[in-house]
Amino acid sequence: MTGSNTIVDFDTVHHAFGDNIAIERFNFKIHRGERVAILGRTGAGKSTILNLLVGNFAPTSGTVRIDGIDPFVQHKSLRGVIGMAYQAPRLLPWRTAVQNVAVGQEIAGVAKEKREANARLWLDKMHLEDAYDLVPSQLSGGMRQRVSLARAFAIDPALVLLDESFSALDEVTARVLREDFIKVAEEESKTAMIVTHNIEEAFQMAHRVILLGRPARILAEYHTANEPKVGTTEFTVLREQIRDLMLSPEGGISAYD
């Protein structure tokens, strides 16, 4: 960790797959302790941003840094820096909840007793006190996603990445999980990037919402403290404005349209 205040830094990032431009002159920062939602339609380049962040490939031009580290060039240096939860929980089916949560620290070389104690602590925070020794096939969809979130937090990462992590759940379960995530992230002062196509989710979870056009470029930026609360009539109006913006010519078209 560099101790810098900037955790994520995209500097004039451009990325193309052949003739298809996925990201266009993208400038974007996330500061320590901040929760930022990346909101966009399918094909808006959200996955490309995530892939660049975790170092799966390098940008065509521009620079990407996480806590001062180039995720592509210094791939191994990112060990313990990013904790990620996906749309599907992606748990190891033969491992118990504790063993799944402990896997990040196991890779980091933490002793078994210590990492399993830490895993139990995180499962407690995710309200899974009774599920320590259950395997994924014995857990409900919501419980599995809680294990996945606990796994992301358990390595004490500089950045927690959520990739549509609540979109496969029913609305009631998703809402409870979002609230629990926010509570834990605030208690632990965690920096988080939430990738979603759900407008309510973005405004409920983040301090800042970045609206992406297609190809990925910033269409608008919202500081949620200055915007109406989710569930109010004013928010419904804002939501319609955002939808209109996403569907307008400014929102852009992608190769998938």
Partner: peptide
């Protein structure tokens, strides 16, 4: 091997032996 699970484990940056022990052997 499920590519999604592999990707989820690779985010922790395991070495080849760890990938073998944690994923491939089981």
């Amino acid at each position: 091997m499920d590519r999604d699970i592999l990707e989820a484990i690779e985010q922790f940056r395991p070495n080849r032996m760890q990938t073998l022990r944690i994923l491939l052997l089981p």
